[in-house]
Design a protein around this nucleic acid. Sequence first.
DNA 1: TTGTACTGTAATAATATAAATTACAGTATG
DNA 2: CATACTGTAATTTATATTATTACAGTACAA
Lengths: 138, 138
Amino acid sequence: MNNSRFPISLHILTLLASDEGVLKSSDHIAGSININPVLVRKEISNLRKHGMIESKEGKNGGATLSRPANQILLSEIYHAVQQSSLLGNSKNKPNPNCPIGRQINQHLDDLYNELENVLLNKLAHMTLSDFVKQFENQ
Amino acid sequence: MNNSRFPISLHILTLLASDEGVLKSSDHIAGSININPVLVRKEISNLRKHGMIESKEGKNGGATLSRPANQILLSEIYHAVQQSSLLGNSKNKPNPNCPIGRQINQHLDDLYNELENVLLNKLAHMTLSDFVKQFENQ
DNA sequence: TTGTACTGTAATAATATAAATTACAGTATG
DNA sequence: CATACTGTAATTTATATTATTACAGTACAA
């Protein structure tokens, strides 16, 4: 998880959940996050592929949640944006002639998977709705 | 955790633990990880500051564990290399005029802290010794 | 007492990754 | 059919990571 895709996706979903049923444009969302609208559209495209968002093209188009916020788990968002593993991929190519180097990537992968499961288990008990409820009406 | 400092530090410590009491040079360690020796020395310097490693300068110098491997927790290693937060820092600067944008970084930070605690709790129950035991003698 | 093999660390260069920007075809609406 | 959007590709720019160079300092051993 080396970039800010998780916070961006969560921000998008939070905006949509805070005004459920209303279509929001990528420009409007980008204005709230303060990033480029194209990045927002990319993340929306990704969230759509993962079944959390629906979007409508054309004039007055935009994005909206495809399900109630209390049926969207934070673990789903994590899965949707996850590319590399948690603590940094084992992208090193250790020396295969070293008994440690030869085996370490496998053991690192096992460790990461174990940690990731712990994290996902936690996130699977939190809904988007829980997250949005924390926001005060200001 | 956006770089590979955790795997590098764990690799260094694994090498030292696999041959406890013996001084290993940064060149030798770098050869196993297959990275630049200066990076290894930087990580060793960091691990030394965090009390996990001792090192000796000069000819025949090198690094060694400062405690038995069963007294080094993986959570300590995590702490030693940790810079940014888990899922990507809230480095975005959302629009303060948006009710969601204004509050989201605080809620993201809270969420990250909660997740990080779960992770650290898991890592605090794993020792370097446990990790090294997995390696087969080849 | 001096050559050698190391550490420690700063400064810089190279590379990889992420983010912003530009561009434009496609779509729905009024 | 003009307008306001989405969708997506291509490119540029910015930022972060990693490698490299350089060199002073230290300990050992002949």
